[in-house]
Amino acid sequence: MEQNEKANRAIHDGEEVQKIWSWGAGTDGQLGTGKLEDELLPQLLHLPSLTSSGPISLLACGGAHVIALSSGGRVLTWGRGTSGQLGHGEMINSLYPMPVTSLQDYFITHVSAGWSHSGFVSDGGCLFTCGDGSFGQLGHGEYRSHCSPVRVSHFLNEHVKQIACGMRHSLVLLEGSQVYAFGSGKRGQLGISMDRIKSVSLPEITHGLEDVKIISIAASGDHSAALSVDGHLYNWGRGFIGSPDSHFPQFSSSSFLFTRAALGWNHALALTGDAEVFMLGGNYHGVLGDLEKMRPANQLPDSRGAILEKVPSLDGVKVLQIAAGAEHSAVVTENGEIKTWGWGEHGQLGLGNTCDQTSPQAVSLSGNTNRGASFKVYCGSGFTFAIMHPCDLF
């Protein structure tokens, strides 16, 4: 609480407490620059309204929209809104961050952005969703879209901790570590049945994790993933390169203990407790780095080819944070450097060009003069955000 009060005082006194950059695909206004165009280099944003409720503690980047969560529990959204995913009560795009006013009576603690839907979790364990519902991914028992957040009634007597929104499906983690899923299930990403399921519109429990203490969940494309308290990585849904679809969670028998996971459309990143980065699947657009030098780590049971690989270009580099876009990757190193690689067609790598990169490249942030700051990086489908948190506040 003292940190929040300090941050808010600094903002009202006109001090600079946080910097935010964006780059990549911007034709739906998702970059927050006020322009409808791609940016090949990081753009320093000047948006006082974005931090008016305190510093931004979390960003969620979707297909072409962004959700910002402030340290004060307030939510702002911008970018593509044609399915209602911005939660503003209408289905139009927004060039600039606007508050989600219907959530102002709640203290929001977690948010997630899918391809065209959004999820919000309050400190009281309430879950709200909005946006495209044509595959049942909003969890309301119907296939309608909603332009304002609607509470998911299935969890009225439960305490929701997290939501993870994929392309057309959603995962929910309850306080008791149970995982539920709803939406499209054609690639097994719901983990609810061995049969091919088109979609479900009400939450159903994901099988195979009932006796596992899950601490975080992730979803992107037709993939789902979860991390257990003992560091095991579970994944299910669409098969990665060389592996079939999995209708139930599979776990890595790796000796490494993972602390974070990030999913793209064809690849996954996993961060170990020793600050090393491993990848799973995806040799498209170089998202796996230097393919010829990859060293297999462990093969997932029964996956017939899906192998965790260490990213060789990051050998000896301690990584603090990972992020995955549709087909690009980003990391933040111990010394505060941001590195990106993979698909670069829209400038989402922030290197000043539209080239793909097969190994991590350093990104230069204009206006970055605070060498004592820490960074967080976030990836959308073809765009990237970076936030600088001054160390005296966080």
Score class of each variant (00 low, 15 high):
206 T>S: 08
247 H>K: 10
200 V>A: 04
358 T>S: 15
208 G>A: 05
255 S>P: 05
5 E>F: 09
335 N>Q: 07
2 E>Q: 06
392 D>G: 06
62 G>R: 01
84 G>Q: 00
130 C>L: 10
7 A>I: 11
270 A>I: 03
76 L>H: 11
353 N>L: 13
387 I>D: 02
369 T>F: 09
155 F>C: 09
286 G>P: 07
371 R>D: 13
309 E>I: 11
174 L>G: 01
55 P>W: 05
369 T>Q: 07
65 H>Y: 00
122 S>Y: 07
54 G>C: 02
57 S>W: 11
97 P>T: 09
139 G>M: 14
380 G>T: 05
314 L>K: 08
82 T>D: 15
111 V>P: 00
115 W>S: 08
273 G>D: 09
62 G>T: 00
372 G>M: 08
68 A>N: 12
388 M>S: 14
66 V>N: 01
233 L>T: 03
320 L>A: 06
63 G>C: 03
186 K>P: 01
294 M>A: 15
389 H>T: 04
253 S>N: 09
173 L>N: 01
149 P>C: 12
171 L>C: 08
191 G>E: 03
134 S>N: 15
122 S>V: 08
31 L>H: 00
261 A>Q: 05
208 G>E: 08
242 G>H: 09
221 G>N: 06
288 L>R: 09
69 L>N: 02
305 G>C: 09
122 S>A: 12
373 A>T: 13
302 D>V: 06
298 N>R: 06
374 S>R: 15
347 G>L: 07
389 H>G: 06
264 G>T: 11
217 I>R: 13
196 R>M: 11
151 R>I: 15
289 G>A: 07
17 V>T: 11
202 L>S: 15
369 T>I: 04
265 W>A: 11
290 D>T: 01
121 V>D: 04
205 I>P: 07
338 I>P: 01
179 V>D: 10
353 N>K: 12
51 T>G: 06
53 S>D: 10
300 L>P: 02
34 G>R: 00
326 A>W: 14
6 K>N: 06
366 S>D: 11
385 F>A: 02
116 S>M: 13
7 A>C: 10
110 H>N: 14
106 Y>F: 09
6 K>W: 02
38 D>Q: 00
277 V>I: 09
262 A>N: 10
6 K>L: 05
90 E>V: 03
205 I>N: 05
202 L>N: 03
289 G>E: 01
355 C>L: 12
392 D>M: 04
2 E>M: 06
345 E>V: 12
367 G>A: 10
273 G>V: 09
35 K>F: 13
187 R>N: 14
167 M>K: 14
97 P>C: 07
84 G>K: 01
254 S>G: 01
337 E>I: 06
261 A>G: 05
20 I>H: 07
203 P>H: 06
371 R>I: 10
379 C>K: 11
89 G>L: 03
180 Y>M: 11
128 F>S: 04
216 S>Q: 14
179 V>C: 12
75 V>L: 08
277 V>T: 10
210 E>C: 02
198 K>L: 15
151 R>G: 08
126 C>K: 13
176 G>F: 10
152 V>D: 01
336 G>E: 05
378 Y>F: 15
307 I>A: 05
183 G>P: 00
231 G>M: 12
366 S>M: 07
196 R>K: 08
161 K>F: 14
376 K>I: 08
